[in-house]
Amino acid sequence: MFAELNSILNVSPEHFSTGEFVLLSDRQSDASFLLHHFLGFYLRAGCQVCFVALAQSFSHYSAVSQRLGVNLSQAKEKGQLVFLEGLQESLSILNPHDARTGSEAMDFLRNPGAGLQCLFQFVSSSVDHSRGAEDGGRGPPVLLVDDLSMLLSLGVGVDAVLDFSHYCRTAICSQLKGNVVMLLRCDGEDDDDDDVGSDDGSERLLRGLTHQCSLALHVQSLPTGYCRDIHGQVSSQVVQRQAGGQQRKMTFHFKVHDKGASFFAPGTSSAVL
């Protein structure tokens, strides 16, 4: 959890709005550090978290969270965190001779054209189950997805991913008043040549998800080139659909450290001041 990002977004673990759909995206950069922030944030806030990790193994997330001061295995034992380790689950499907069967969440690998019903069933059951069992002091349910672009790489169509995100938004944001955070990693050269990458899968998905989201954080590398002291820039866009289309857009630079990240206004890096 990065305190500076919280103050920029004007939230805190004690006080945050629900029913939000947060889209994290990146281009020629890596936005996964923001996902670690949101994971720690919602675990500290006491939410019921469902984490769909397609890109990395549990030990990776656990090691990073440890540095950020959150213990994932403890949260998993308590039942606060439901963790789907996509890499592990996919092994038994990609090597079919194996007798062991994992959960059915990754069944879309057998036939990627058929859609993501199984994955959504996993999400909704893990969210429902936790609410049914002991709804003690737990906050609203939260779904985090690491890397929707992995789904595209595995052969799932753009429309199926959009359906999945829409179902998740309806079930979690609207019905259960929870939050959804999804990460999408794109690979275009830059923003300017939109026409060239228009038929690109991840570009279409990015536009579709931007249309759905309520807060978009877009990470990209510096337009002026590689720099050791500034790792890139984040532009945040808060979408307010009710209040007459007033949209706030902010851009700030960031630097990722070993145990956190610092965010600052463009031009105020500690390296130049």
Partner: peptide, 15 residues
Amino acid sequence: HALTTFLYGLRALLR
């Protein structure tokens, strides 16, 4: 998606 799916499986194996 054949190569990307293979690389996903390879990553899962190696991890």
